[in-house]
Write a protein that binds this DNA or RNA. Sequence first.
DNA 1: TATAATTATATGTTACAACACATAATGTTT
DNA 2: AAACATTATGTGTTGTAACATATAATTATA
Lengths: 153, 153
Amino acid sequence: MSIEDDLKGRFRNEYHKGLINLTYTTKQLGYEFFLSLKKHGIAEQQYNVLRILRGFRSQAPLTIGFIKERMLDKDSDVSRIVDRLFEKGLLTRKENSEDRRQKSVEITSKGLLLLDSMFECEKRADTLLSNLNETEVRELNRLLDKIRNNTTN
Amino acid sequence: MSIEDDLKGRFRNEYHKGLINLTYTTKQLGYEFFLSLKKHGIAEQQYNVLRILRGFRSQAPLTIGFIKERMLDKDSDVSRIVDRLFEKGLLTRKENSEDRRQKSVEITSKGLLLLDSMFECEKRADTLLSNLNETEVRELNRLLDKIRNNTTN
DNA sequence: TATAATTATATGTTACAACACATAATGTTT
DNA sequence: AAACATTATGTGTTGTAACATATAATTATA
């Protein structure tokens, strides 16, 4: 399937196509992953928060700000995502007595169990680019890094 | 700036990095473009609908379904996006007398003027990948196409 | 032709991003 | 210590994706 067919449009040039292609491909990969998450009744950002809580368990409890820094999306509304996970019993949230502005957030055993049961989602994520060989992925990463160097200066 | 620094994390392998890199880079490019739109008080999907209305002006009026097919996101909620544009006076929306289920949507002169005033946004979009040379963009497109062939089968 | 299937659009819900603003706790300055 | 600044988090709003369901109009079928 070519992107031209799919979008029913034409591109001004390779750069134009590149931008649309990036958006389109990433959206599609995200959707693939989203589908594998959906079976577990959890939204993508909630999953990401749980992953961070598990990944940094040695430094638990974590604050909202710490979690926020580690989200792919820097503007994540972690307060309300944590709300939803709290209501599902997947994490605990307490006032930090050292600094009462902060919240101490920790994954529960229920949360850990859920992540364990989602192991195949993580495996799925690793296969999304499997159509590229090692050299190609490396080249993709090089190109993406190069693109970003441009836009962040 | 490396993505490793930025995400404060490590990657399992190049494939893992590739997926995160795609998500992250695309998000950043999208944000760049979003910023240039914001000055004109219009949201990204609303802009996309206006572009389609202008682009296919020769076939006007267009139906909601026609617009939907041409959106990058196939699940776009075109009905409500059109609502918002209608309220801003940027398009007209009438019942189609041939098939009264359909709506006939057409961009207004106010909508065309807005797009004209946004010409620099389009130019901006074309420069987002300018850090890559022609060969590199071509290679990027090849890799993205190859990724998608995988995930759509 | 009455009925059933399909189509085009609308509406309602949940989760979220991006933003502005609010609030409370803490730190700093005078 | 009182006043001000900063920090951590919360809340409210708008726009949207993804989804389910609704409704009306049209087409196909028995």
